[in-house]
């Protein structure tokens, strides 16, 4: 409201050329921030199983829940998890979006389709975040049945990228 009443701002605005010609305070620093996170027990096993083309979760008997990705303790009851649970690579789309900008903000004409996929065998249903593929963006629906498309064994590195994407299950 205030600014709307001002006809002309005092002073001179900065132009792109002022930065290019270093007429204003200019400092540039390329950060060197590198980390080597210890995967530990839970993430370590999760990544090792991905490399083998398998999904694994954990079960808390106390809370009667099975979750993925695995963790060593149950955040609901704060007890250690009871057992590892192999899980299928199929699931149901919990939610999704059609994203028309990349992570580094380039515009896309064909959208990326990030989705949370509730993995079969988890209880209550929990999902992993991944991308959908081999599907028309407009055809994606919440509740759609999907299955992982894996990289070939020799290309897997122990990463969530060992799954290329999830694609619709062609039922029947």
């Amino acid at each position: 409201m205030m600014t709307a009443q001002i006809k002309e701002f005092p002073g001179v605005g900065l132009r792109e050329s002022d930065f290019e010609q270093r007429k204003v305070l200019y400092t540039e620093w390329v950060p060197n921030a590198r980390y080597a996170w210890d995967a530990g027990v839970a993430i370590g096993r999760y990544l090792a199983e991905l490399k083998e083309g398998r999904l694994i979760g954990v079960r808390c008997r106390h809370c009667r829940r099975t979750v993925i990705p695995p963790r060593v303790f149950c955040e609901w009851c704060f007890r250690p998890m009871d057992e590892w649970v192999p899980l299928p690579d199929t699931g149901t789309v919990n939610t999704f979006s059609l994203c028309y900008v990349t992570w580094d903000m380039r515009r896309l004409t064909e959208p990326e389709i990030p989705a949370v996929i509730d993995i079969d065998g988890t209880h209550p249903p929990v999902g992993i975040l991944h991308l959908l593929g081999e599907v028309e963006p407009q055809a994606v629906q919440i509740g759609m049945r999907v299955q992982a498309v894996w990289k070939p064994p020799e290309e897997r590195t122990g990463s969530i990228l060992d799954i290329r994407y999830f694609r619709p299950v062609r039922e029947g």
């Binding site: 996170w37 210890d38 995967a39 530990g40 027990v41 839970a42 993430i43 370590g44 963790r71 060593v72």
Partner: peptide, 8 residues
């Protein structure tokens, strides 16, 4: 502490 993640 290579055997555990920071959360662990």
């Amino acid at each position: 502490t290579a055997e555990v993640s920071y959360k662990e």
